[in-house]
Design a protein around this nucleic acid. Structure first.
Lengths: 227, 227
DNA sequence: CGGGCGCGTCAGGGTTCCGTCAAAGACGGC
DNA sequence: GCCGTCTTTGACGGAACCCTGACGCGCCCG
């Protein structure tokens, strides 16, 4: 199920979007100002954001920057402004598309589909969404982990953490980046979360959890997943 | 260098685009019909395609489908048609964006930048910048150092120091600059830090630490990293 | 020829960082 | 409204890391 975050301060627009999106089986969250939008984005991790630039509390472009600080989620900008400069500024700040009001619902939905489609992982054909180690296998598409032939049960947070690490296989991921990608942009310093959840992952997946081979700690820097 | 394929049958539009793109150091190919476009795309593997839908030999949407059969290259559609149905059809066929003529060049270029930006890998396993010497390799993105096939563990400070030196490969880096980049702006004179950590780096990476080949001391001035 | 300066090396101590455990709090399902 | 699961906290021992001071060496210059 695709999750959409709608951000607009005009209730009738939000209403129209929510109705149309829900009718097409999207899951929808709505925010009417920038602060709520950033908070909801962090909490719910939408697959795409529809963002009106004219918000009551902050500049829409700053909302884009706030999101881009920690996520690459597609951002589709709505705006009453037709000026070329506004469009360029929003797009260069990290927006993916820019639609001027009034807009046609069909067109908006088509642009939304396009944004979601290209954000999907490229590995549809033969791309290996499955990562194997000597002891366990991770299927990123199916969100499944197997060990010794048996499915391993992971909580949502555990899975999310595993996913970020596996997607950066072999590469060091800084603790700040991990925290922000899993818990949201305001959690850049709560390193104790990492300690607890890394321990959970190792207990569930490593052969010898106290001497991890695949989830390696780099003291003072971050963690690294190694096949 | 980013390569753009421009497809349009109106010579003046192609000309305007080519001039503007080349001025911004894009590499540009141009086609005036669909068949040539598909052929050029296959031969040159552009990073983004700008496609006019009104072509003389075939339907623009079929060009999109032809491309999407084998590539996910971003496609930015240009069209004189404002109808919503046309847009929806093109977008659902696999286009990434749809701009109606007449268009502003600034806006088009901004949309092009957005399309290229989101197509570039978030960080795929390969494609990292790797610096090699005869004895060890440094992967700056993965924060990984290998020597004789084995991973070498570096502490945060050691890594930071190595990073500054490697980023200035071949150039002399003054001790003051090194100190300030690694330890912070208020540390301009504690040269003993440098001595200690340079020794650590050499012990971990040089074949003969007391006769360094890659981390060269320039007495009284600073240090230099040599491949 | 001797002193001074800059650099390399080593080892100890204070501090930060990490793994582990347990328990309270929040959330959702029945 | 209760119960089980998941998340968030807090505390503690141990490990890793950073700073520091001392010493030896080679080079330049007096």
């Amino acid at each position: 199920m695709t999750r959409v975050l709608v951000v607009d301060d005009e209730p009738q627009i939000v209403r129209a979007l929510v109705i149309n999106l829900k009718a097409r089986t999207y899951e929808v969250d709505a925010a009417h100002d920038g602060a709520t939008a950033l908070q909801l984005a962090a909490a719910r991790h939408p697959d795409v954001v529809v963002l009106d630039l004219g918000l009551p509390d902050m500049d829409g472009v700053d909302v884009i920057r706030g999101l881009r600080g920690w996520t690459r989620v597609p951002i589709l900008v709505l705006s009453a402004r037709h000026s070329s400069d506004e469009k360029v500024e929003a797009l260069d700040a990290g927006a993916d598309d820019y639609v001027t009001k009034p807009f046609g619902m069909d067109e908006l939905l088509a642009r939304l589909r396009a944004a979601v489609r290209r954000a999907e992982p490229a590995g549809t054909g033969e791309g290996d969404v499955i990562v194997e180690t000597g002891e366990f296998t991770v299927d990123l598409a199916a969100k499944k982990v197997q060990r010794a032939g048996r499915d391993v049960r992971l909580t949502p947070t555990e899975w999310h953490l595993l996913e970020v690490l596996v997607r950066n296989s072999g590469r060091l991921v800084g603790q700040k980046q991990l925290l922000q990608e899993v818990w949201g942009p305001s959690y850049g310093t709560e390193t104790n979360y990492l300690r607890v959840y890394m321990a959970q992952l190792r207990r569930k997946l490593e052969a010898d959890p106290s001497h991890p081979k695949h989830f390696v700690t780099e003291p003072g820097m971050g963690y690294r997943f190694e096949k």
